[in-house]
Nucleic acid binder design. Structure first.
Length: 846
DNA sequence: ATACATACC
DNA sequence: TACTGGTATGTAT
């Protein structure tokens, strides 16, 4: 009995895979036959296997819940019961039956649009979508079990004659616009839920409607639209409400058009080609649906109830082309709720239904009866939600659409395993997303990469930056690093992807946009406002943000600029707090950089490094380039600026964290890179040693060399041999000025100076750079712990055990986030280095 | 804050 | 051959 889910195999599995006949149009069909076909079509596929896995996860959740249930004592239950009783009383007092909420939903929307525009489809089972996935199906096809969210190839097996029409979103959007114009007449504040669905508050309209002249309630049949619809020409002659059925013959077996007939007692005497609607709710809603049909030749269904939750259920009741009104009385509501299957309620899906079923709850009345139990088994939000459902409560006021919280683009494709292509694709997706972002003028701080492998396993990786991004370059700069990390983590296997997506969230509000987005750009420009930022990107940014202008600076910038720009903060050795982690980490990396890339350069290089550190290099004052200089040998020629101002800009920058060269003239993109390096959420340390290759540039172009993209990557995946690193280590020294400067490796100079730890200032009794290096790391780690309230994620240093002792808190802090390979087992310990994982610089200064 | 799961259309 | 794409939110860590 490995687990009970194995035994129930298909039984439990059906809840995931089987036909969902929850929706309208699925009555009385051969479920067994349909399910058999669905199963046979799926069996053995990767998709099936994954669904199986997820099903078992759900089953385990249920098992846990049942165990919990078994442990509930009589006493607990009693207590919970009282508590629930009290809450019920409270909630009931808040019940508001005064609003008239309407939920409108177009019938088989996409399919109906396609049928309208292609009359040959009317008599055929058809669906909109593709072989791989259907968006919706017409009612004819539903009789075969063909429905939305079903792959087309399975639908074809269920119904070989099925016609699959590709989606045409522009068309649906246009229709959507038309119906929304009508919605607005009844509730200017209506809330669209999708292209074909909306909630409306009819209360105010009904108030006004009582005084509305009949002429305003009179609507004409639109004969021109009928001609188009291939309907019998006699339809307009009819004056009875039945004449509404002028739409394409979608629903020859429509369960009822009754509701439309009802309420007609309020209708005035029949006049040919016009209809007068009454003043009641039902008449008003009927009128609205009539107008929709006249305007679009498409039918809608509607639900009328005292709250949104109920209205939604009601709109489904007489679908298609029908409406249902639930009277606004407690009794009517409670009656309605009694036998309502929980699954019908919006928000209770497959999984929740299954869990509730396991507790013998299938209808809303059961929910009410078991509330005490539920309050002990589910989270507060969950059981509160259940409680409200069991009482028939829901939102009574329709919140105008709040601002969006995220925006994303994702794509599914045939297996994609080639790293280069994955990167290229990532860039394309970022571009698409950036285009969408631009349309709404959005900027966001969190970038999430979503990946699905060929086994349908989904992964997401996110970073939150300290500034907002919006352009393709900016987003890609982050997303590609996330992707890179995943590629690395998969090694030596390749990532076999079937989907990739990028999402932006944590939007900054319009007012914030200017101030928020600075980070490095801010101080880059603050150093020399007049001459810096000559690339168009930079200019753009500087205008937007006035990054240099202190009056608009955020706290973040205020923190950053003085500390980074003023040499004083280094000179004042007394100001220990300012000699914070970042500076030290920074210095360490500088040391690396010097050791690594530039044994051929010399003192200039050292100065330049110091300049980067203090961001006050004279050189950068002189020329027009950024304070962060390109350090790649040979330095790339600055590109001509496209700003037309005759200034030039660097075409690449050197990351002050990892020191790889980032080939971009876009400071935001560069900024994003630095943030990634700094944050390293995936807990990979920035390599202590830098290899010679410049992989960032490779990546940037979507031309990643698979074994060269380790610039900001964990040591454990870096390929370079250990010996190299030893040679590249340079000690960090304290010079007279108090600024941290670099001491190049001296091995070839013979006599080596004493090694002084830049953190603890003590001379180290060793001339082994690796050992010294380890010491610095330890010092840094301890420093970090003292300095940071929220410790950066810290990796074990040279000796993992020593690190454990020295840094229990750091371990604590990194737990759960370092699920990846254990560095100490997959790479030489001496390569494991400290890394800041907090987002950006400013964090280190707080 | 991040990752993953659930839900809806 | 073949099982979506976009957004929000809840849960767990």
């Amino acid at each position: 009995m490995e687990n009970s889910t194995v035994s129930e195999k298909d039984g439990g599995f059906l809840s995931r895979m089987a036909l969902n006949d929850n929706k309208a149009g699925m009555e009385g069909l051969d479920r067994d036959r349909i399910n058999k076909i669905i199963m046979e079509s799926s069996k053995g596929s990767r998709f099936y296997e994954n669904e199986m896995k997820r099903e078992q996860q759900v089953n385990q959740r249920i098992e846990k819940m049942m165990v919990q249930k078994a442990q509930i004592t009589e006493h607990q239950l009693k207590k919970a019961h009282h508590m629930v009783e009290r809450m019920v009383a409270e909630l009931d007092k808040t019940r508001d039956l005064s609003r008239v909420i309407v939920h409108v939903d177009m019938d088989a929307f996409y399919a109906a649009v396609e049928m309208r525009d292609c009359p040959e489809l009317k008599d055929k089972p058809m669906a909109v979508g593709a072989m791989s996935m259907l968006s919706t199906s017409n009612y004819h096809a539903r009789k075969f079990g063909v429905r939305a969210a079903m792959p087309g190839f399975i639908a074809k097996k269920l119904c070989p004659e099925l016609v699959i029409v590709p989606t045409n979103f522009d068309k649906y959007r246009a229709v959507s616009h038309e119906i929304r114009e009508i919605f607005a007449d009844y509730d200017p504040h209506f809330q669209p839920m999708s292209l074909d669905e909306a909630y409306l508050d009819f209360t105010d309209h009904l108030e006004q409607r009582r005084n509305l002249p009949e002429s305003s309630r009179t609507h004409h049949f639109n004969s021109s639209s009928l001609a188009k619809g291939d309907e019998p020409a006699d339809v307009p002659q009819k004056s009875s409400p039945k004449a509404e059925c002028i739409s394409p013959v979608l629903f020859d077996d429509s369960p009822n058009d009754g509701p439309l007939l009802q309420g007609s007692e309020e209708t005035g005497p029949a006049v040919s080609t016009v209809e007068v609607f009454g003043t009641s709710v039902e008449e008003a809603v009927r009128e609205m649906r009539f107008r929709i049909e006249q305007k679009t030749q498409l039918t809608a269904s509607a639900g009328i109830a005292p709250n949104m939750m109920l209205a939604k259920v009601c709109s489904d009741k007489n679908k298609p082309n029908g409406q249902y009104r639930l009277a606004p009385s407690r009794e009517a509501v409670m009656d309605f709720i009694q036998n309502l299957p929980v699954r019908k309620v919006s928000g209770i899906g497959k999984v929740c239904e299954k869990m509730l079923n396991a507790l013998d709850i299938s209808s809303c009345s059961h929910l009410g009866q078991q509330m005490a139990m539920l309050s002990l088994l589910f989270s507060e939000t969950m059981w509160h939600h259940f409680l409200r459902i069991s009482l028939g409560l829901g939102s009574t006021h329709i919140a105008r659409h709040e601002e969006r919280k995220s925006m994303s683009t994702e794509r599914t494709f045939r297996e994609l395993s080639c790293t280069d292509e994955q990167v290229t694709l990532c860039r394309e997706i970022c571009q698409d997303l950036a285009d969408d972002m631009k349309k709404e003028e959005l900027k966001g701080k969190t970038v999430t990469l979503k990946l699905k492998n060929v086994n349908f396993e989904v992964r997401s990786r996110a970073v939150t930056l300290t500034y907002a991004v919006s352009t393709a370059d900016e987003i890609f700069a982050v997303a590609k690093d996330l992707l890179k990390t995943e590629i690395e983590n998969e090694k030596p296997q390749l990532l076999r992807l079937r989907l990739m997506g990028v999402r932006i969230s944590t939007f900054v509000s319009g007012d914030d946009k200017k101030a928020q987005q600075k980070s490095i750009i801010g101080f880059l420009q603050s150093g020399k406002p007049s001459s810096a930022g000559t690339s168009k990107d930079v200019q753009q940014k500087s205008e937007e943000e006035q990054a240099v202008n202190p009056s608009t600076q955020t706290l973040q910038t205020k923190e950053e600029i003085p500390r980074w720009t003023r040499k004083k903060s280094f000179d004042g050795a007394s100001d220990e707090t300012r000699q914070s982690f970042f500076q030290k980490a920074q210095a360490k990396r500088l040391q690396l950089q010097t050791a690594n890339g530039s044994s051929q350069e010399d003192h200039d290089e050292r100065d330049a490094a110091a300049a980067v550190l203090t961001l006050e290099s004279e050189e950068s004052e002189k020329d027009g380039t950024s304070l962060v200089r390109c350090r790649s040998p040979p330095p790339p020629e600055p590109q001509a600026s496209t700003s037309g101002l005759g200034a030039s800009t660097a075409s690449s920058y050197t990351c002050p964290v990892c020191f790889s060269q980032v080939k971009t003239s876009n400071l935001s993109a560069f900024n994003a890179h630095i943030d990634r390096c700094l944050s390293n959420k995936s807990c990979e340390p920035v390599p202590y040693m830098i290899s010679d290759s410049e992989s960032e540039a490779d990546f940037q172009d979507g031309q990643l060399k698979c074994d060269q993209m380790d610039k900001c990557r964990p040591k454990e995946v870096q390929k370079q041999p250990e010996e190299t690193s030893d040679q590249n280590v340079a000690p960090l020294m304290n010079d007279d000025s108090g600024a941290l400067t670099l001491q190049k490796p001296q091995s070839h100079h013979g006599g080596r100076p004493a090694l002084i730890c830049p953190v603890c200032q003590l001379t180290q009794n060793t001339d082994d750079l690796t050992v010294f290096n380890s010491h610095v790391d330890l010092c840094l780690n301890q420093q970090v712990l003292h300095e940071l309230q929220t410790p950066a994620t810290v990796r074990p240093v040279s000796n993992p055990r020593a690190a454990d002792k020295a840094l229990p808190a750091a371990r604590q802090a990194s737990k759960g986030k370092t699920k990846r390979r254990d560095i100490s087992s997959s790479a030489p310990a001496k390569k494991a280095k400290v890394v800041a994982s907090s987002n950006t610089i400013d964090k280190f200064f707080r």
